[in-house]
Each structure stands twice: as C-alpha cells, then as structure tokens.
C-alpha cells in the first residue's frame, strides 16, 4: 500500500535511524511467546487432520488393516505424539474461545452480552459437543 501523502522532509535533518526487528523478537515478551505457541498449535491441528485421514483409510480398508492401524497407534511413539497433539489442541481450543468475543459482539436490545459470558458459553458448548461425540462413538 502506498501511504505517502506528502514528500518526505529533506531540508535540514533528513537522516533517519530505522530500528530492525530481531529474529528472536517473539522470545522477548511472555505475551509474544504465548502468541507464537498459539500459532504453532496449527502444526498439530494439521498433523491430526492427517492422522484422522489415515484412520479413516484404515477403517475403510477392512478388519485386518484396521487392527494393523490399531497396533501402530499403540506404539509408544504414537501415544507420545497424541499426548503432545492433545496438549496443543486444548491450548488451541482455549485460546480460540477466549478470543472469540473480540470479533463477536452480541447485543440484545440495549444490553451487550459481556465477553466473559461468551467465553464461558463457548467452553460449555465445547464440553457438551465432546461428550456427545464420545457417547456416539463409545456406545456403538
């Protein structure tokens, strides 16, 4: 975007010093670090989407492929990977819910629903959805 609205000042002191951002900028404030961690959850979300896809392929490939896939899932490496994915996925969910009120402003007549109530509503819906999914799968 061109933001120039007037010629830059050049007459007596045209020199400017432009500070450069350090490669380690995200390490310099706790809030920045938490932000980068939040963004990195996406790597784990993507990883899980791929794992879920593989799970579906195994499911569709017959009983033998399915039990092979279960053995793979039982390996310590896979268990550890899923633990890490779960941690990041939960962090993703919690940060997503806590930021939802920034974009969502609910007005009922003259009353603005407080941001905290929106976050709590998200968490409650999240827990209900999770219980529902678990119930559908486990009671088959």
């Amino acid at each position: 975007m061109d933001t120039q609205t007037q010629a830059p000042y050049k007459r007596f002191r045209p020199e400017r010093y432009k500070p450069q951002m350090a490669l380690s900028w995200w390490w310099q404030k706790p809030t920045y670090l938490l932000y980068i961690l939040r963004e990195l959850t996406s790597v784990f979300v993507a990883t899980y989407a791929v794992i879920l896809l593989l799970t579906l392929r195994a499911l569709g490939a017959g009983g033998e492929a399915w039990s092979d896939w279960l053995t793979t899932l039982q390996s310590p490496g896979m268990i550890a990977l899923h633990l890490v994915i779960l941690l990041f996925a939960v962090y993703h969910s919690l940060t997503w819910f806590s930021l939802a009120p920034t974009a969502l402003v609910l007005r009922i007549k003259d009353y603005t629903v407080p941001a905290k109530a929106l976050v709590v509503a998200h968490v409650v819906i999240w827990l209900l959805c999770s219980i529902a999914i678990a119930a559908i799968v486990l009671t088959r």
């Binding site: 975007m1 933001t3 120039q4 609205t5 007037q6 830059p8 000042y9 002191r13 400017r16 010093y17 432009k18 500070p19 951002m21």
Partner: peptide, 23 residues
Amino acid sequence: LDHFRVIRDLVIDTDDFMGKLKR
C-alpha cells in the same frame, strides 16, 4: 517508540503513520 524511524534521540518520525491514517 519501537518500529518507527527516529529523527533524533527520543523523537520519532510520524509521517508514515499520518499517511496511513489519512488513507
């Protein structure tokens, strides 16, 4: 202030911001 061009000591150049604001 970080991210701004500095004219001298603690004085920053606000021209860039003024242009953006106008846009």
